[in-house]
Every structure is written in structure tokens, then in C-alpha cells.
């Protein structure tokens, strides 16, 4: 019998053609290692902590009967709302993320603008200088600031030597140190999308505005800024979303009074070993971030196509 005569159902044939096989390799990988874990987090956030390994109760309990009973509890979520620490931590993360996004935007825009308007032969090397810190370890770049900002650190040493101050400034372990750390670490993420946008801007529009008698500053506000809005949005998303859950910077540069939800989650997991509460913290953070993440995805898809 010829092998071709065997009737294969059409839906199976469609499912197993080469095209779908190629799509399914990265697709299944991400489904299994990126999406599926969130379902587990949701499941564990509904469990209760126990002293065991793993330290949480099973959602399904197999008793005498043929079907399992579901033992979901909202205790972890109720706990988050009953203790003001968690609400404060979310709000404080939001505040820090918003302020540092604005600061990063102002500084990043000036640098991106200056690189994009630099003489053509300089642009490559300047862009390279922006990208280089982005490749350097995050941890190392945050660590570098400890030696500078410490009370007996290099900044205070320099300022007292010059004579600007006579008492050392207390910056380390304050929110100010956290802002410095965030702006410093996330600056390349802001500059790159802004530069990509500003560099391909049609200069004839700016010339037209100048020819018609518009002052440079007004041209900047009414032409350059609105045209660079996609770059501004992309940069702000790239900074705001990860900063909301930032752990390393508040942990190393911030003080005990610096509340950020990433630090709280870390503490619940590693120090308190309360996995259900850590999961609930993650689920709520995810719920806050899901809308910005979707906006970011839309803006990126538009930028590439």
C-alpha cells in the first residue's frame, strides 16, 4: 500500500506541517518557562504557609471521595491589605518609579538630543559611549556608587577638601541615594529609544519652523517634543516598569526606611520563607504592571513594523 493513500485527518496534517513545527519551538518554550510559572504563582498565592518543603499547602486535597476538594484561601491577600506596610510599599514604589522616570527622562533627553544633533562622524562613538555602561554589570555599577556616596566616601571627601561643606553630607542609605542609583542605572534604557527617534527626525520641519520665524525654544516645544513622543513613551516604559519591582538598588543604596515592593517580596521569600505571601505580593504587582506592559508591547510592535 502506498503511504500516501493513508488518510490523515486534515486538522492533524495542518498541525504538523513544517511551519507550525518551527513556530512551536520558541512558542512552547515560552509557554512552559514564562507563562506557566505565573499560573503556579497564582496557585501558591491561594495556598497557606506550612513548615515543610515545599512550605505551602496543596490546593487540591485528595480525601476519601473520588474527587479532590479545593482548598483555596485568600488569607495571603487579606493579610496584604490588613498590614499597612504592604500598601505603603506599593505606593512608595510607585512614587519612586514615577519621580525617577521623570528625572531619567529629563537627563536622558538632553543627552540623546545632543548625541543626535552632534556632527555625523561623532555620533557613532558617542552612541557607543552610551551603550557601553548598558553592557556593564548592573550590580557593579550600583556598587560603584557606595564608595562615592558613603559618609566617609569620595564625594564627601572631595567636597570637604574644596571647602564647600564642613560637615559630611548624609546621602548613603537615604531615598536620594536610591534616586541617584536608579537614574544612573536606567539612563541608557532611556537614551537609546530617544536617540533612535531623534536621529531619524526630519530636519526640514525644524528648518521650516525657523524660516517662518519660530524661535528655537518654541520650535523645540511645539515640533521636536511632539515628534519624539513615541521615543519618550518607549523610554519611560523601559524605566518605569522594571523600577516598580527594583530590588538591588534600594537594597544596596537605600536605608531601612526606603520601602520598595521588590525588597518586600525578596524579604518575604528569602527571610520570612512565606511563599504564599511572596506570591500574593508578586500577583498584585503583576496586576498593577500588566496594563503598562501591554502598552509597551503595542508601542514596540508599531515601532518595528
Amino acid at each position: 500500500m502506498n503511504i500516501k493513500e493513508i488518510q490523515v485527518p486534515s486538522f492533524l496534517r495542518r498541525a504538523f506541517n513544517g511551519r507550525n513545527a518551527i513556530i512551536s519551538i520558541p512558542y512552547l518554550w515560552l509557554l512552559f518557562l514564562f507563562l506557566f510559572p505565573f499560573i503556579i504563582v497564582l496557585k501558591i498565592s491561594l495556598a497557606q504557609p506550612v513548615i515543610a518543603m515545599p512550605p505551602y499547602t496543596d490546593l487540591l486535597k485528595w480525601g476519601e471521595s473520588w474527587w479532590p476538594t479545593i482548598q483555596a484561601s485568600l488569607d495571603s491577600y487579606l493579610f496584604l491589605f490588613s498590614d499597612s506596610l504592604y500598601i505603603h510599599a506599593y505606593l512608595s514604589s510607585l512614587k519612586i518609579a514615577i519621580i525617577s522616570t521623570i528625572l531619567t527622562l529629563i537627563i536622558g533627553y538632553s543627552i540623546a538630543y545632543s548625541v543626535a544633533r552632534a556632527p555625523t562622524r561623532w555620533r557613532g562613538i558617542l552612541l557607543m559611549l552610551v551603550i557601553l555602561p548598558f553592557w556593564t554589570s548592573f550590580l557593579i555599577r550600583v556598587y560603584a556608587w557606595i564608595g562615592i556616596l558613603k559618609t566617609e566616601g569620595l564625594l564627601n571627601l572631595a567636597l570637604t577638601t574644596i571647602g564647600i561643606i564642613d560637615k559630611p553630607l548624609i546621602i548613603m542609605n537615604t531615598d536620594l541615594a536610591v534616586y541617584i542609583g536608579i537614574v544612573y542605572s536606567y539612563l541608557p534604557f532611556m537614551i537609546l529609544p530617544l536617540y533612535a527617534n531623534l536621529e531619524k527626525m526630519d530636519m526640514s520641519l525644524l528648518e521650516a519652523a525657523a524660516d517662518l520665524g519660530c524661535r528655537p525654544l518654541k520650535t523645540f516645544w511645539t515640533v521636536t517634543i511632539p515628534l519624539s513622543l513615541p521615543g519618550i513613551l518607549a523610554g519611560c516604559f523601559l524605566v518605569f516598569i522594571p523600577v516598580m519591582g527594583e530590588f538591588v538598588i534600594p537594597d544596596l543604596l537605600g536605608g531601612s526606611q526606603t520601602l520598595m515592593i521588590g525588597k518586600v517580596l525578596w524579604g518575604e521569600f528569602f527571610y520570612n520563607r512565606d511563599w504564599p505571601v511572596a506570591s500574593a505580593v508578586a500577583i498584585i504587582l503583576l496586576a498593577i504592571l500588566v496594563v503598562p506592559i501591554m502598552f509597551y508591547q503595542k508601542s514596540q510592535e508599531k515601532a518595528i513594523s
Binding site: I23, P26, Y27, L30, L31, L33, F34, L35, F36, P37, F38, I40, V41, K43, I44, P54, F237, L238, I241, P242, M244, G245, E246, F247, G262, L265, W266, F269, W275, A278, S279, A282, L285, L286, L289, I293, M294, Y296, Q297, Q300, E301
Partner: peptide
């Protein structure tokens, strides 16, 4: 699919770390 490509680039690392670990444990 494109959501799963773009989300990990901005998703806070603590969320990715926790969820991946919990999956391995389960």
C-alpha cells in the same frame, strides 16, 4: 507570542525569579 517576547524585557526581575523558581519546585 509577541507578548511573551516583550514582557520579559521589562518585567521586574523579582517576579520572573520567583515564578520560575516556584515552577521548578512544584
Amino acid at each position: 507570542f509577541s507578548g511573551m517576547i516583550y514582557a520579559p524585557m521589562v518585567m521586574p526581575e523579582v517576579i520572573i525569579g520567583l515564578s520560575t523558581l516556584l515552577m521548578f519546585v512544584s
